[in-house]
């Protein structure tokens, strides 16, 4: 290698390209670059692989247990529901989004790399969206082996699982996941401490999965307000799964709820990132 900087002559410095500054590249190419970098970071992170190994170790035990029950009952229609409503699924929903998202902005703030990122020609929302979308893609990738296992079981057991029901179940899980990932990116934007970001996000997820159900069970009679009842019903994620998605039913209202909540938390994250401009 020729050390140009020391020799000073072996390579000529290229001319600067622009005297004015037209915007380089397309928005799509910038966002794609951001997403691929974020996805790559998740892919090479040991944390991701430890998560993956632990989840599928648990799922392995769960599947073995389920198969014994299936051999006794032989209920093909309810098998996918039991298969997806296991402890490892709850881990996937409560623990995985916070762990995947905890470093997205907190780490950038801690290391100072946010400055380098935001002084590149990218918009704040492009950065936030890319970080969320990359973690969502990774989250989808984490679910793919579970679907592959289901297909393998179908072939091995020579049965036919209800495809529509399976598809809506995964849709429900991915929609909740997208919302919790947006929450995770949001909590990560509030602090430069990854642990704090993930704990806040876990707290939110646990609250979302348990509180509406508890309130709906205990306090339905005491909630007079129509809005209160509607809010509880909309936020009752477990009920959405049990009575809708996992039964093969899709209510547009539920889909809109998760998509809107995702958009809301991403919007709040953009505002937090932009807040450096108000200080």
């Amino acid at each position: 290698m020729t050390d140009v900087a020391s020799s000073g002559e072996s390579v000529e410095a290229p001319e600067a390209e622009r005297t004015t500054a037209p915007l380089p590249g397309t928005r799509g190419s910038r966002v794609f670059a951001l997403i691929s970098k974020e996805f790559w970071s998740l892919l090479v992170s040991p944390v991701s692989w430890i998560l993956f190994a632990l989840l599928y170790l648990f799922r392995g035990f769960e599947v073995s247990d389920l198969l014994q029950r299936f051999a006794r009952a032989g209920d093909v229609d309810s098998f996918p529901t039991y298969y997806l409503l296991t402890a490892s699924t709850q881990w996937m929903v409560v623990m995985v989004p916070p762990i995947l998202t905890m470093r997205t902005l907190a780490e950038e703030k801690r290391s100072g790399s946010l400055e380098l990122l935001m002084t590149a020609p990218v918009r704040d929302w492009e950065v936030v969206f890319s970080k969320w979308f990359a973690t969502w893609l990774f989250y989808v990738a984490l679910w793919v082996p579970s679907f592959a296992i289901l297909l393998w079981l179908q072939a091995t057991l020579d049965v036919s699982f209800p495809i529509g029901q399976i598809a809506t179940s995964y849709l429900g899980l991915l929609l909740v996941g997208s919302m919790l990932l947006a929450v995770g990116v949001f909590t990560s934007s509030l602090t430069d401490n990854q642990l704090l970001a993930s704990l806040s996000s876990i707290l939110f997820a646990v609250g979302l999965l348990s509180v509406p159900g508890m309130l709906a069970g205990r306090g339905a009679a005491t909630i007079d307000s129509g809005f209160g009842r509607m809010f509880l019903e909309q936020a009752n994620v477990v009920a959405h799964w049990q009575y809708w998605f996992f039964r093969g039913l899709v209510d547009t209202g539920h889909v809109v709820f998760y998509v809107s909540a995702t958009a809301l938390f991403l919007f709040l994250t953009v505002r937090v990132v932009e807040s450096r401009k108000w200080r």
Binding site: A21, L23, P24, G25, S29, R30, F32, A33, L34, S36, K37, W40, S41, V44, S45, S111, G112, S113, E115, L116, T119, A120, P121, V122
Partner: peptide
């Protein structure tokens, strides 16, 4: 503009070449 901040906080999980490729794509 090209900016070198006071503390160079570079993403540690990329190789030098990959890092520059990413930044080049980001900058169009």
């Amino acid at each position: 503009l090209g900016y070198l901040p006071e503390n160079v906080p570079i993403w540690p999980d990329l190789r030098v070449e990959e890092y520059l490729r990413w930044r080049a794509r980001l900058k169009g």
